[in-house]
């Protein structure tokens, strides 16, 4: 771990008119750290994620990111070209619904290869080879490389979406309910895969989830949101095993035990 945060978030607020999306959120994210944002629907966790990932413009506050050259840059002051470049090289965004993050009418290989071509790779053979490697890493058989994601199961699509995001070796991944809508067994496989990738690649990640088991398995640290505010945050196992706030205690006690 280096001694500067990768992402510095200061007093981020987002209002939809008079309604609060999220309010006064501040934290640092360090290289290699996985942060889970938990809370029920409407708690503002997705709004916060979108503000951080520059998919939404926050009403106030600042998000700074440490670029590959080490310079801290405030995201809102970057040009759109720079932001979009950042998003397809140094960042990833994994949507809950894979169809939002994939090109459904384009083959799996091209889905993975797109970012490479976007940064100027012009050798078909090499692009295809890299795409094949990534399909293997996300446990998709390489003989599916020319199939469209339309022909894939939900779990495969989600894994393809992850491969598509990771191919440029990003340093930060945003994930919005990455296991939502998947069968439990498929979820487990995906979680394990994510866990391994995050560890092997030293990725930083911000994961929005309502599933505390996902937070427990993947994250180092977590934030609990309610009504747009972060009401509790800290080490993941401490928040889950020794919750302080009433709402967190309610959340933790609401988990079904198998």
């Amino acid at each position: 771990m280096t001694d500067t945060p990768l992402l510095k978030v200061r007093d981020i607020s987002k209002f939809y008119g008079a309604r609060i999306g999220c309010q006064n959120v501040s934290f640092d994210l360090w290289p290699g750290e996985v942060l889970a944002i938990v809370g029920e629907s409407g708690s503002g966790k997705t709004t916060l994620l979108n503000c951080l990932a520059t998919r939404l413009m926050p009403t106030s506050g600042a998000v700074e990111y440490r670029m590959r050259d080490g310079e801290m840059r405030e995201l809102s002051r970057m040009s759109e070209a720079e932001r979009r470049f950042l998003m397809r090289t140094d960042w990833g965004f994994v949507h809950q619904n894979p169809a939002d993050g994939l090109r459904m009418a384009v083959s799996a290989g091209a889905n993975v290869g797109e970012r490479l071509m976007a940064v100027g790779d012009r050798h078909y053979g090499k692009i295809r080879e890299t795409a094949g490697d990534w399909l293997r890493r996300v446990e998709i058989s390489t003989d599916r490389i020319d199939d469209q994601p339309r022909a894939f199961s939900g779990g495969m699509r989600q894994r393809l979406q992850i491969a598509r995001n990771l191919v440029t070796a990003p340093r930060l991944i945003f994930m919005d309910e990455p296991t939502g809508g998947l069968d439990v067994s498929v979820q487990a496989r995906l979680l394990d895969l994510l866990r391994g990738l995050v560890q092997d690649l030293g990725l930083s990640a911000i994961i929005v989830t309502h599933d505390l088991a996902v937070a427990r398995l993947l994250s180092h640290r977590m934030m609990v949101m309610k009504d747009g505010l972060v009401i509790e945050q800290g080490l993941t196992d401490r928040v889950l095993d020794d919750p302080r706030e009433a709402y967190t205690q309610l959340l933790v006690s609401s988990i079904l035990q198998v």
């Binding site: 384009v106 797109e114 071509m117 078909y124 692009i127």
Partner: peptide, 22 residues
């Protein structure tokens, strides 16, 4: 329009990639 403005043309090669793959 945004892609033209920002010279983001990776997608064009995606089309050619698909051609070769098929």
């Amino acid at each position: 329009r945004k892609m033209h403005a920002l010279e983001e043309y990776g997608l064009m090669h995606v089309k050619l990639y698909e051609d070769i793959a098929r």
